[in-house]
């Protein structure tokens, strides 16, 4: 049972981390930088780094499934949750709500982070009281 939770936690980090890293540049693109580079570009670059961090954490979790516990899940959840602050507060994006970053890229980032945080919190809840194998 711990093994299944370990798999799910690792795969969530890898898949959602990948989406965070490459999504704003491919599937849910942020504003174009052809005319000028705007704040949203830097927000997405910061999110790219977080995405890579999450993927690395996920890979490590995959290699050491049995050592996972409530704390590793909560840590991932915190990373997902705090990533929301990058486009919404720490760096920000275009002020105009009709811009691509506000319309598409940032909402997708928020959605991925919410999903990631919820999955990891549920797994953390399920891990409570479990002993490390």
């Amino acid at each position: 049972m711990n093994k299944t939770k370990g798999y799910v936690s690792a795969i969530a980090d890898i898949v959602l981390g990948l989406l965070l890293a490459i999504g704003p540049w491919t599937i849910f693109k942020t504003c174009s930088t052809a005319e000028k580079i705007m704040k949203c570009y830097y927000s997405c670059r910061a999110v790219l780094i977080i995405g890579i961090i999450l993927m690395v954490i996920g890979l490590i979790k995959l290699l050491f499934k049995k050592s996972q516990n409530m704390i590793t899940c909560i840590s991932s959840a915190v990373i997902f949750a705090l990533t929301i602050l990058i486009p919404s507060w720490a760096i920000g994006g275009c002020a105009n709500p009709a811009m691509a970053c506000q319309k598409v890229a940032f909402p997708c980032i928020y959605a991925i982070c919410v999903i990631g945080a919820v999955i990891q919190l549920i797994l953390a809840w399920k891990y409570r009281g479990c002993k490390d194998e």
Partner: peptide, 13 residues
């Protein structure tokens, strides 16, 4: 509710 809040701009547009 969360989806409509997050994707407010995309939906209205």
């Amino acid at each position: 509710a969360v989806a409509s809040f997050i994707f407010n701009n995309a939906i209205t547009s």
